[in-house]
Design a protein around this nucleic acid. Sequence first.
RNA 1: GGGCGAUUAACUCAGCGGUUUAGAGUGCUUCCCUUACAAGGAAGAAGUCGCAGGUUCGAAUCCUGCAUCGCCCA
Length: 901
Amino acid sequence: MDKSTASQDIPKHFNPGSIEDKWYSFWEDNGFFHSEPDDRESYTVVIPPPNVTGVLHMGHMLNNTIQDVLVRRARMQGKNACWVPGTDHASIATEAKVVQKLRKEGITKADLTREEFLEHAWDWTDEHGGIILQQLRKLGASCDWERTRFTLEDDLYEAVIDCFIELYDRGYIYRGKRMINWDPEAQTALSDEEVIHREEQSKLYHVRYKIKDSDEWVTIATTRPETILADTAVCVNPEDERYEDLIGKTAIIPMVEREVPIIADDYVDMEYGTGCLKITPAHDENDYEIGQKHNLDIIDMLNADGTLSEEAEYFIGTDRFEARDLVIQDLEESGQLVDVEEMTNKVGYSERTDAIIEPRLSLQWFCKMDELAKPAQENVMNDNIQFHPSKFKNSYNHWMENIRDWCISRQLWWGQRIPAWYYGDGKKDYVVAKTEDEAIEKAREKSGNADLSKDDIHQDEDVLDTWFSSWLWPITVFDPEFIRTGEANEELEYYYPTQDLVTAPEIMFFWVARMIIAGYEFEGEKPFSNVYYTGIVRDSQRRKMSKSLGNSPDPIKLMEQYGTDGVRVGMLFSSPAGNDLLFEEQLCEQGRNFANKIWNAFRFLSMNRSEETTISETLEIDEDNLVDRWMLSRVHETIYAINKDMESFRINEALHKIYSLIWDDFCDWYIELIKADEPGANIPEERLSRGFNFFEKLMKLLHPFMPFITEEIWHHIRERRNNEDAIIVSSWPAFDKQAVSDSDQALFTLIQKMISAIRNIRAEFKLSPKDDINLIIKARDQKTAKALHENEWIFHKLQAIATFKAEAELEKPGKSASAVIEGTELFVPLEGLIDLDKERERIQKEIDRLEGFLKSVEGKLNNDGFVNNAPEEVVQRERQKKEDTETNLEKLRANLEELDQ
RNA sequence: GGGCGAUUAACUCAGCGGUUUAGAGUGCUUCCCUUACAAGGAAGAAGUCGCAGGUUCGAAUCCUGCAUCGCCCA
């Protein structure tokens, strides 16, 4: 690596673009991201695999930055850190994209065979897959790229099939005709989780049906009048006196003129609409259940694409929404539409295609969940797996308690094909088998027909839900054969359970819950110990960032503009766990400015070094120097606090603390105080060396957050022995309790406050920083006087001071600006310059403030309840506060009087 | 309809075990190109902690109710 840099080589503004690629390659080429099992403690994270054909968005940026912070810190802590990257085939999302692309070329899916379509899909994947992985490198993700997996790779594919067979054999998977969510656009079933309910303004149509053999009518209310064509009953509440006499009679459905029974069921809400419900068992979940209960006919009036089928009798082939209008028109003309009511209604949309979901009776594969879910529920509730923040436990628990069977089949081609083979048309004429040969064997056995051959059986056309593959992710990335063999290989043994999972709450049910279920079912052990839920990235108007809105900045462009480190900390700064992040570019600016600040601190130190400068290997402070002791104390105090924050996943808190340590303590005070005494002179060697030593420690603490700039500076500070001597694999600073000194910190804080008071006086009285002042300090006691005297140099360093006096006993000077800090008085005689009224005002303001404070303290102490009940320690503290405040007030009042003399 | 959460400075948010008259960043005001950094420095203004009760010696913090907003589930 380069030798230490001479100052003239260092640009005034940090230029991140010039170093990022260099260091990323350096890390990767040296194998720092790669992990192999060894005797160290393992620290494992599996990435939430992004869609293989996706591109990086702000959500990924946030999520993966957090993972990288965790992984880098663990690596520095000496753990065997392994972050497994990869991508997901994302069945429906990818297939929809491929279909769309083909459509542009004038090809429809129906024109192609399964094999031809899959060829297109793989082409698409080869072309776009990997883009997002490349983008993750740009953000600094320290993934073990040698372990990159894709959920549709052969062995992972096989693991999913094994899983299906295993669960089928254990009796958890079944095939059945049930109500499912149908996406007419993608023409596939969806799980409940893939349906998004949106509240909408809609209309409630009141339609009257004639009662058979009478002049009576019954009026029903519906939001979906087109489904009238498939009605097979009318239902009222048995308690409803209005309709008592109708029960048992027959109603005639408009248009189709079907005769249907009027039945009673307490499911009907008497308050809703007319209190009279039409029943369409084929197109509504609740109606289906009523239909089952009352043994009603089921008429399916829709085709797979959402057009009306022959069963509808009317408008065959017309789209469902067009048919709605036509039905309304018809009812209007026949005088059967009696009222239209405005109302809000929840409508289900497909998560992927945004088509309105059609509840549909369909033959699908399901996974029985209640039993499987039990250990997964328990182990989150008892914190065996911890959620951060823990508030998400509630919704997890609620979902688990009401868990429903999972529809796992999808009418798609892109994914793992269901390993079921059919040999007849009967309900049970199928077998589940891994290969065709095995299927023939099983089919012969089950059917009793020994002559069955290849041509007599055919495999299920459908594939499995994407999440049925990704729920195995934490297991199969290490050992794809485990599901089949049940015997863990060395890798699974070592890396499983993983430690932390970082993901968005949006996929808690889709993915997190199911991974936990699969973990316990197959591995008998949790898949991870902690789940960190990030917020959702929104724009400044709280809108979720989305492509269609065009409100999402391109993270790659942001990184180019502000530097990767800048964007990383900019995002982390205002995103505590589980809180949505309202993203604005200003955040990146803040991050970039921080990088620049660090860069200039480094630049300044470098400007002071010469050819001969040597920087000691370890930090040895000057024990006689308060500033050194204070800085060391602050560093260790912060190490302790950061460790605590990180352990409880308060990542933004940890970042704030290191930010403040570097900017406020190190840059604003420490560097100022090690500067050379004469303008233009270099910082004395020993001081410079210690400055670099401190800086090196700070860079380590910052590395997980800002990997690039810290690595760059690391190599400039001193010549590194070899490539292994890189900050990414350096050791995380150890906390040393001995280094923390309350008394040193208290003394230095007092001096800081005094300096600030002097600056305030200068500002109030418009004194230039260059004007020399005389400083007279009346210390609160001998000890303080002595300490201030010993550290007189600090005052001179930071202020232009002609004479300095610090005594416990001394005569107060007249006509001075003054301040009282913790009982110590400070005077700046300003005869002639001082505006007495202004000074009176200043002091009065401080008196007012302290009087207010004193009042609140006295309020507590005058309260017998407080004195008798509060812990002695607390009471004592209040007494001390009272005493101190009274002393300060006395002095302030005296000083105020002094001005009038 | 059920559940969860939020409401703190102009804005975005911290405030984890109840005890400095509440903190940060941004923005705002004034001054400063002072031997790194104007992407900077210094000083300063700015909050009845959504509303109403309750528990307590003490509540932004705990409890109850209400209002508003958001999310999840049916």
